[in-house]
Design a binder for these strands. Sequence first.
DNA 1: GCAATAAATGCACTTCCGTTGCATAATTAG
DNA 2: CTAATTATGCAACGGAAGTGCATTTATTGC
Lengths: 138, 138
Amino acid sequence: MKEIEKTLENKSVRPTAMRILIYKYLAEKEVAISLTDIETAFAKAERTTLYRTLKTFEDKGVVHQIDDGTGIQKYALCEPGCNCDLEQDLHLHFHCNNCDETVCLTEHKIPHINLPEGYIAEDANLVLKGICEKCSGQ
Amino acid sequence: MKEIEKTLENKSVRPTAMRILIYKYLAEKEVAISLTDIETAFAKAERTTLYRTLKTFEDKGVVHQIDDGTGIQKYALCEPGCNCDLEQDLHLHFHCNNCDETVCLTEHKIPHINLPEGYIAEDANLVLKGICEKCSGQ
DNA sequence: GCAATAAATGCACTTCCGTTGCATAATTAG
DNA sequence: CTAATTATGCAACGGAAGTGCATTTATTGC
Ligand SMILES: [Mn+2]
Ligand SMILES: [Mn+2]
Ligand SMILES: [Zn+2]
Ligand SMILES: [Zn+2]
């Protein structure tokens, strides 16, 4: 479990008890996680601490934020070597209309789009919505 | 100006005074509009009426809703013959990080994506963010 | 035209989520 | 050990979406 502490320190995030717990929680879930999810999982902890932990993780590149169109901010651990800032690193996300879960499809990059004259793209977000593999019965 | 009344009636929306005003407002703006925008433009009108007008417009296919990632719901008039439900009608949206405006790029459809086994796509949202033509100095 | 009915509007209030200020506790650096 | 920095706890705020219900306005059947 010293692994996690190493990972956090490498990203200059001090490995406090709470942060390690949250990291572990994120690591064992394979879906995008909201603040409310974490709040529920750690009912005794302070909401603000959880909130700021996520923000710190985001700032330091431990997680990336996901906007899946539900209006609720979600987060997922960055892949090792992930470079969220760079456009070529942008993968798409899938939101299941049935189970309401959102997953990263890290292998599926957002295709390049030719914009009209004068438009300069700096970032992109592509969310597909439908039925996930778990819910589609296969 | 009977044009607008006709358009609304064709979509089974009763053309009340307020609705016609809001329609005109949407028509003369070439960017996506939020409830707050409309609230500002029609300061004397009731927020709820404006809110429900947008919802009615959306339900009846007068406007389509736009999620540009700002967390604020925006709306734009549907193109004549637009079929927002159908996947092939999905166009992308561009949000300017400078002027904070969002526009429909109705000519740019969202490219088809090959999802992993088991995933069934029903809907999609693609937002590009960057500098718009007005702000890019050309 | 008039009463009965349906739809639109106005007002108040709520909920959800994200966010901030500031005091206290814990950790780190000198 | 002390001072400075950082993390946590608690309370409160704010924006935006949404709802319930009374009232006004429009529509329909007669
Ligand atoms: Mn992701
Ligand atoms: Mn659009
Ligand atoms: Zn699912
Ligand atoms: Zn712009």
